[in-house]
Simulated scan of single mutants.
Amino acid sequence: MDDSGSPNDFDSWQAVAASGALLERVEAEQNRTPAVLERWRSEFGAESVRIALELCEARRRLILKWPEASGWIADRSGAEQASSKAAALHKANQLQLCEVTHVTDLMCGIGGDTAAFRKAQFEVRAIDRDPFRAQCAAHNANCPSTIQDIREYVDDGSFVHLDPPRRDSSGKRRHHWNELLPCPVVLRELQTNISRGMYKLAPGTNPNEPDLSQCRLEWLSERGRLTQCLAWWGETPTDERSVVRLDDGWTFRGVPTPELNHRGEFGSYLIRADPLLERSELQWTYARSLASMEGVCPGLGLLTADTLPKGSGLDVWEIEEVLPWRDKKLKAAIRTREGGEVIVHTRGRAVDPDQAALTLRAEGKNQIHLWCIRVGTRRVGIFVRRPTSHS
């Protein structure tokens, strides 16, 4: 949902979805030339063709997240903002562990999370101020829906899943708490008046946002990308945070702790914590749970060790050589390795990785991994490889 509401008419979209003939042509035709589009418009009408094109694109995107979404009704924006099946089912599973039985999906959008709550056998009601989105959720999740502004919502004792829209009517993304719609004041009031609930927020949400101080924060990732920050309220207040990598189920929870001691240089291994740990500020807590690691220098965020660390939350590279970041020296080292393609990694914008990779590319057969790091005032190039025994 965006705050201005969708201009789409659900009945028109449902009619196009039910007709079949136009959708079949749109799905089958890869070369949609102006002549083809004009022929469709003459036969089916311009508005029906517009709907069919967007519905096919929305379903194409949804199926990547929800394999059974081929019959769903959604516009493109709604499809892009919908939770994946993995994320939605994770939330539903957590609610089952909390013995929740009734869920209200506020600002439900096209019903991705709503569908997971229904799949988990909860009593579910979808609410959105946008009539089109509310009706999409009812259709996609096969549940009751209500067209209502959240300002008018009255707590009925159910658990509330609240998904403030992360895009405005122009499609611009909203990443920060104070940019959310309807506005932080309304959200704070809801949080105060509703006994138990959860915000679905952008993964870049500031974990130290004062309005979330009474919430337990949890970050999710899929396919190496951070996807959501969940802020649970109604539980016993805690400073503990948690992260979940949905691809393999790896999870970690803890309280943020200060940075480790810094040795000022790299040991035998260069180590980066999983982005989930960095975003939640748990990387130092996780590192302490494994021991044997140190920081390199303040603000860099990377770890180092002299012995191979074992931890599912770590991205570990074995260091082959450390050189000053000078093209001549780096190119010579690449030639000795029979290097060709160079993949440049960096932190803190020490270098433009794409430009550096292009500059350093050679004619050899081997792929080279090279980190550019600023250690103090010096830029260094670190040649790395994957440890053969790392798991």
Rank of each mutant, 00 (worst) to 15 (best):
D3F: 15
F10Q: 04
D11Q: 15
S12C: 11
Q14A: 15
A17K: 13
A18H: 04
S19W: 10
E29K: 15
Q30Y: 12
R32Y: 12
T33N: 08
A35N: 13
E38D: 12
E38S: 11
F44V: 00
E47G: 10
A52W: 04
L53G: 03
E54I: 12
C56G: 09
E57I: 01
R61F: 06
P67R: 13
W72S: 06
G78F: 00
A82N: 00
N93F: 02
H102L: 03
H102V: 07
G109Y: 10
G109K: 06
I110K: 08
F122G: 09
D128T: 08
A137T: 01
I147C: 05
D149V: 01
V160Y: 01
D163K: 14
P164V: 07
R167A: 15
D168V: 04
H175C: 13
H176L: 09
N178T: 12
P182F: 07
P184F: 02
V186S: 12
E189Q: 14
L190V: 11
Q191S: 04
I194Q: 04
S195P: 12
R196P: 09
A202W: 01
T205V: 09
D211S: 13
L212N: 09
E218Y: 00
W219E: 00
L230F: 14
A231G: 04
G234Q: 05
T236I: 06
R245D: 13
R245Y: 05
D247T: 12
G254V: 05
L260G: 05
Y269A: 11
R272M: 13
R279G: 04
S289H: 08
S289G: 08
M293Y: 10
M293C: 02
E294T: 14
C297L: 11
L302D: 02
V316F: 03
E318C: 04
E318N: 12
I319A: 03
E320T: 10
R326C: 09
K331P: 04
K331H: 12
A332C: 06
A332Q: 15
G340V: 04
I343C: 10
I343K: 07
R347G: 06
V351P: 04
A356L: 06
G364E: 14
R374C: 14
R378S: 07
G381D: 07
T388E: 15
H390D: 01
S391W: 10
